[in-house]
Amino acid sequence: MKISGSNTLTAPVDQVWGAMLDPAVLARCLPGCESLTTTGPDEYAMRVTAGVAAIKGTYDGQVAITDKDEPQSLRMKASGSGAPGTIDAVVDVRLAPHDGGGTVLSYDADATVGGTIGGVGQRMLAGVTRKMAGEFFTALDNDIATGGAVAVEPELAMAGAPAAQAPTPGVGAVYAGRAPAPGGFDLGDAKGFVLGTVLGGALVAIGVLLGSRLGRRR
């Protein structure tokens, strides 16, 4: 499945670049992200709760950012698997200054979606993914604008290492996401079911994978 799209962010290119490489920001902004752990330079393990329609579940995935050409482009490779299926994605992300200020972020994702979600949810995936990507970028933009006002401090996995003492996130740092994101993605008349998303880090971080929680009808 190939998905392309672009979004315009109000933050300038440099800030968007920085935010996308900041695991704390990613964890906050990724739809459905429960946790994100750095496993190496520009490599993360993450847990995302996502779904398309009734096919939902928790995915464990890995994300690696490569081919960085600061601040213009990078490539994200992501893979994840969970009960509803599997995802493998390569996402090329490009950043460019927007004429009126801000940043145009465009992406080309090539994702292989397997398992139940691949066979049954296929025709919803591109649309859902695009929407989730849009939500992610909006969240990213807001996060930059508020300076991470609602930032969550990283908890270091290593016992006894006070979070505040970690000047830069190291391997093993765990960032809590905001996963059940209440009211995060209301699809209008959607019947309060959980719709999908992405494991997506940068693009949605990544290609986005499958789904996060949508607002429930009250």
């Binding site: 292989t112 979606v113 397997g114 066979g119 049954v120 296929q122 025709r123």
Partner: peptide, 13 residues
């Protein structure tokens, strides 16, 4: 698809 996923594995598709 090229990876061997059956994309229309339901009566929706």
């Amino acid at each position: 698809d090229e990876s061997g996923q059956l994309l229309n594995a339901s009566f929706m598709d």
